[in-house]
């Protein structure tokens, strides 16, 4: 099992790289071969990643969420899985490169820096916590996806407006579809984040004796939740659509990234386990 984990740890970035490369080749070079193999490659990669995560969980006796590098690998996985789901639902297969490149970098960082922790912080061995982390990470991947689609929307929007009919114009799906993909991702992310917050707040008093509801991590998360919430509300009530909404999906993701990195690493009171 140990050998298997070690082997897969190095194999995964390679698999992601090959997948990203074939998606790029299909998008930028219009290669027929790449178009044929890219989705099967992605399925294989995600499948391997699933095996890897299961193997880690069994071998170390806890889910792979005990340090930031394990989490990075899980994020790479959830992002790729979310993309695969979206590709399957919408049948739009051209945008993979822009999403999977994120997975590749997350997994690469994880592979290089990961340490094997057999005895993790006992607080982190809780079922509620597993639920909390799973929904939060899936939610963040959904936000990442929506930011990518928002970014692609804005790119295509400007290309069409300024009469640039190049690779971007040729290969991206239409604006309406990109907007729908971004919006669906935001809704999914928003629901998952809501679940994560509720579970977190329930779990908090059980795990810690001293805690504050004004902890920077909690405040940061509420800001993310509000940013997306206001965006969704504006779409529903005052009919925001198009570019403005897409800008918001990117802003939301930037706030999310800040909360994940700056707040977690430098400011957090209790949410600092690693």
């Amino acid at each position: 099992m140990k050998i298997f984990i070690l082997y897969f740890n190095y194999l995964l970035p390679v698999l992601y790289w090959i997948t990203v490369w074939s998606y790029a080749k299909a998008f930028f070079r219009n290669s027929a071969f790449a178009k044929k193999v890219k989705t099967p490659l992605l399925v294989f990669t995600v499948g391997s990643h699933t095996l890897y995560l299961i193997a880690r969980t069994i071998y170390f006796g806890h889910p792979p969420i005990t340090n930031i590098y394990e989490i990075l690998s899980v994020l790479a996985f959830t992002t790729a899985l979310s993309y695969l789901t979206i590709e399957y639902i919408t049948k739009v297969k051209s945008t993979g490169y822009f999403v999977l490149v994120i997975s590749f970098f997350f997994q690469l960082l994880s592979t290089v820096l990961i340490q094997d922790l057999a005895n993790a912080n006992p607080i982190l061995r809780s079922n509620l916590l597993g639920f909390h982390v799973a929904s939060a990470l899936l939610g963040y991947s959904a936000f990442a996806l929506s930011a990518v689609y928002g970014f692609l929307y804005i790119m295509l929007y400007h290309h069409i407006k300024s009469n640039r009919f190049g690779v971007i114009y040729d290969n991206l799906p239409d604006l309406e579809k990109l907007e729908r993909m971004a919006t669906v991702s935001v809704v999914i992310g928003f629901v998952l984040l809501t679940v994560a917050i509720i579970v977190g707040v329930v779990w908090l008093p059980r795990a810690f004796e001293h805690y504050s509801y004004f902890d920077p991590k909690l405040v940061g998360t509420i800001v993310i939740w509000l940013t997306y919430g206001i965006g969704l509300l504006a779409k529903r009530s005052i009919g925001w659509q198009g570019r403005k909404l897409m800008v918001l999906s990117i802003v939301g993701f930037v706030v999310t990234m800040l909360s994940l990195t700056v707040v977690n690493l430098f400011l957090s009171g209790f949410h600092n386990f690693y």
């Binding site: 295509l156 069409i160 114009y169 799906p173 239409d174 604006l175 309406e176 579809k177 729908r180």
Partner: peptide, 9 residues
């Protein structure tokens, strides 16, 4: 073609 790049359906 342009209309198809802006609208899905």
């Amino acid at each position: 073609e342009l209309a198809n790049k802006i609208f899905s359906n």
